[in-house]
Nucleic acid binder design. Structure first.
Lengths: 338, 338
DNA sequence: TATTTTTTTGAAATCGATATCATTTTGTTT
DNA sequence: AAACAAAATGATATCGATTTCAAAAAAATA
């Protein structure tokens, strides 16, 4: 264990703790001679400063906490890597908290982070409501959010242009000759859901196609939810030849149902998802989807958050919107035009 | 921000900080009356103790650090969930450090954890050598390791019976009528690799089949490494009808190469992997693999580590070996017997 | 009621760092 | 060499909790 303290270093080097502290923190008001002697002693004793003491006194931990709803989802894992690498390069450490899809667990982590005196928090989760986030800010915490836009607040947010995503997907399907396109949405109240719905409707309107409410069904962003929602959609008997799933997981649920019902993709049904999770390249047929710059989103947001933490005044941009890219693969490349 | 301190609570409640501390820590030498008054004030001020101060004084953080080589690998994610839930239920928090497959990054996290005064560390990574782990222990840290066995040490370890895994897989292939079975190993020096090689050889011997050194090739546990190693294997011209990959990622590499070379699985080549990662169920044909009780491994190890941290003397079991289960799916269910 | 025991409480030291302010040392200028 | 400025160092308060030890209050006993 590291049982040497700053005072041990000071004694051994024949200086005061203040001087050692200066050396430790790279102050320039210490002579080169003293500095090298202290550093040598630090080396000899294999001394490392006690973080608790340091945090207590300096009131900062050079750590940011990341709360993620489920690390097992590779989509999130990628974002976290972006956050982590950017934070590290700015000399910050990252603590990852996995809420495991449980709201209570998430709440527990939030209070853990509050107590742990992390200098900032990034939320990559749909559970915490906007109000709760704003409350955290009002409580004095540095908060940032990826994946959604918090209106009427000062919270740095990074999100994708969901309307454009939906327009891209639906336009592509229309181009392939589809006229009745179902939309498998996520949670009805998730911003992703209704923004994509908006894009979906826009694209239909743009192509002079009717909007059929029966072709909309809500899921929960998970595979099983997609499966169930798809079955409900089929139950409605409003026929459709293509389906736009709000994310890849739900699209996988559609795949599963199609397999069981012997519906062939893409001949009988074209499917497009969103997120470009790894599995999409391994399923047959490969799933058309939308690539989001996940890593970049994480990195950019981390940078902005840390910037803000270190400036007293900032007039910087708060909301960031990144571009996504439609990846056309086999699941949607059967043209119905002749 | 939580700016109220213990002394604020004390003043407002008209007691000393010692008393508040007692209430906070559930000491039973405080009267019921005082206790409820203090608790009410805590509530009113929305007070939470400062973790840095607490850690500094009590020299424990009720936190364990988990170093994982790559959170994006769902295999690890599952283990972490096990660790986390067990730790939480024992009132410990978990800090996840993602080494992103970089040894230096891992080293950085190790020193971070050392300073952060986590009470214990769990390593889910192949990078840190046994020596380095032992050094950590000698330095006074509570360390535990998942996925390998550290000999001549007191480190709690949890691992699977790799020999049995290999025997199960190879015996299954032999039963299907295969006589020339290639083994796509991982890093040559990884314990998983040579234990599985041992099982592979044992199974062959048991069936009176010859051991052909040319049928062994090493990869790196990743998809691309599996792809490359498989190509090298093909280059050797020692023919084989089945392949046992040291993990699923490498088996996916084999799938990729087979697709490019129009080798059909399982008719021309049977493939079996290990780990049962999610993708195995989505590829065509579904990949036969070996399920490891990942969640249980994480949970059990966390429990043992925390037990040890809290006991001065322990004569408890140190090494845990969990059972794995072969999952036969389509990639290996084409029988060559007639 | 006086005395002893038990229960509650508080004062103050402590954990190990940082940061302020005073002081000493060194270097410059006249 | 004297006077002053600048650079380097140290003594000490401080962060906010826990913990020890002593003191006070309450309860039990004589």
């Amino acid at each position: 264990m590291n049982d040497s303290r700053i005072i041990d270093v000071a004694n051994r080097a024949g200086v005061s703790v203040a001087t050692v502290s200066r050396v430790l923190n790279g102050s320039n008001l210490v002579s080169g001679k003293t500095k090298s002697r202290v550093m040598q002693v630090i080396e000899e004793l294999n001394y490392t400063p006690n973080a608790a003491a340091k945090n207590l006194r300096s009131k900062r931990s050079m750590t940011i906490g990341v709360v993620v709803s489920d690390i097992e989802v590779s989509y999130y894992a990628e974002i976290i890597k972006g956050i982590e690498n950017m934070a590290n390069s700015l000399h910050y450490n990252v603590i990852i908290c996995d809420a495991q899809n449980q709201k209570e667990k998430e709440a527990g982590y939030v209070s853990l982070l509050q107590n742990r005196t992390v200098d900032g928090m990034i939320f990559v989760t749909p559970f915490l409501s906007n109000q709760e986030l704003v409350a955290l800010v009002e409580d004095g915490f540095n908060v940032a959010v990826v994946g959604r836009l918090i209106e009427h607040s000062d919270i740095p947010c990074i999100h994708t242009d969901n309307v454009k995503i939906a327009i891209d997907v639906v336009s592509h399907l229309i181009e392939q000759g589809h006229e009745r396109i179902a939309f498998l949405s996520g949670y009805a109240d998730a911003i992703d859901s209704y923004e994509r719905l908006e894009g979906y409707m826009k694209a239909l309107r743009g192509a002079n196609l009717p909007f059929i409410p029966d072709l909309i069904e809500n899921g929960d962003f998970n595979e099983d939810g997609g499966y169930q929602a798809f079955l409900r959609l089929l139950g409605k008997k409003a026929s459709f030849t293509a389906i736009f799933a709000a994310n890849d997981e739900m699209a996988l649920g559609v795949y599963l149902a199609c397999k069981e019902l012997s519906i062939s993709i893409p001949e009988q049904l074209a499917v497009v998802g969103v997120d470009n999770i790894r599995i999409t390249k391994y399923v047959t047929p490969r799933l058309s989807t939308v690539e989001q710059p996940k890593y970049t989103m994480g990195a950019l947001l981390a940078e902005k958050l840390i910037d803000r933490m270190n400036e007293d005044v900032y007039h910087d941009q708060r909301v960031f919107c990144v571009e996504s890219k439609l990846l056309i693969r086999e699941s949607s490349s059967f043209s119905r035009k002749q």
